[in-house]
Design a protein around this nucleic acid. Structure first.
Lengths: 214, 214
DNA sequence: CCTCTTGGACAGGGGCACTATCCAAACATG
DNA sequence: CATGTTTGGATAGTGCCCCTGTCCAAGAGG
């Protein structure tokens, strides 16, 4: 299949596909000569994955490239590859360590991990982007004068842990390594918006149950 | 307090504060004369809220203005105000109704709502942005060839419903109307990143429990 | 009195995700 | 075989967003 057909079957304009090729999100096609290159089903699949990451997952192009690099890196084991791919993602701006709210948030979050017995996560506090994101969010709450710490977060964390168990159970139903990794990355990137949407829908449902539509 | 002090106490540059004033995210100060305006604690609070929305919540400036407009609209009741504020948020591009995957996703999601007995949410399917987001995410999964529908989503939805119950319980502990609304908006905007971070931390914890760090 | 600060206006910058244009080399078609 | 179309590649430009820098004259402060 040539560029035009790849464009037609994916619904992505040729200009955008060229842009992705340039940016290295898509491997180049098999070149025949100066003006012809051949693409296959794998390109189509990759293109759809890229689109899903960018449009549904709102992942910036540079991050997509990074994540795909890890997904494709055959030299790593499954767990590492997955971790590397996922850690390339979120990137909240580094919190200001001098800020008192940030310090307080650090304490709250480590207290939370202790309380939950998340021993493994505790070992990652210095490097995990997720930990950092959590600290930033808690600090923002505190800055606005709301108490929002271990006590309030613990029940949420409990529910999120069950969600994670579901995630991994689902992942284990995809035996092939490459597909498993891709599915896991998709899980992180597409399932999170889906979860968020479910959360908001549930809020709407519960609000209506409690207060009606008014 | 004048501009410089507002800047110092919030950590936001005067240039940026001027920008927010121009954009209507911050009400103007009480003018004394051509070169002096007075700001108060309410401005500081609002400024911190705006920053939290933009930096932690990644909400675009235009949306912040819209959301704040609803938060400040005294003519609406609490539930409506909250709904209006939250619905101003998400920004998933409208799915292509002609796409077969989108149609299938619609069916899956309504099947899910039936299965869960979310009668109120079902009445909102045509207008709720959350519903739309969910459809888009499910469609993206299907486009990539993964079965991801009512059956897989139901246990997640169950957990998200419990999360929503926590949210509303928390909100009810904030009796004042204005504060309650603000807290709810914050809940949607800051708590979602926090939840997402907890989710990822939980994934890391659970992955390590199952497979170790390797 | 003289310097500094203030609020307001407006231009500019940098990042991002495309998008439009141009080109010469191949196809494709009558 | 002539002629119009399509191809991949390169490059410049667009539109949006979130600021940031500079200038200004009126007023505050010591």
């Amino acid at each position: 299949m040539r560029l035009a057909e790849l464009s037609r079957r994916s619904g992505v304009s040729t200009a955008t596909i060229k842009y992705y090729l340039r940016e290295g999100l898509l491997p180049p096609g098999r070149r025949h000569n100066a003006t012809t290159a051949e693409y296959d089903e794998e390109h189509l699949r990759r293109l759809r994955l890229v689109r899903a990451m960018i449009q549904v997952g709102q992942v910036p192009v540079a991050k997509v490239r990074e994540v795909l690099g890890h997904v494709d890196d055959d030299s790593l084991g499954r767990t590492i590859r997955l971790g590397a791919a996922l850690w390339a993602l979120p990137q909240v701006p580094e919190p200001d360590a001098d800020d008192e709210h940030v310090r307080a948030a650090h304490e709250e979050v480590t207290a939370l991990l202790d309380r939950l017995g998340w021993e493994n996560a505790k070992r990652l506090t210095t490097i995990s982007p997720a930990y950092r994101s959590l600290v930033v969010a808690v600090a923002a709450f505190r800055r606005l004068g709301y108490r929002w710490g271990a006590e309030q977060l613990a029940p949420y964390a409990e529910l999120m842990h069950r969600t994670a168990v579901l995630d991994l159970d689902n992942m284990e139903t995809h035996p092939s390594e490459a597909e498993g990794i891709e599915f896991a990355v998709l899980g992180a990137i597409l399932n999170e918006p889906a979860l968020q949407a479910l959360h908001r829908l549930a809020q709407e449902e519960e609000t209506a149950r409690r207060y009606g539509f008014e």
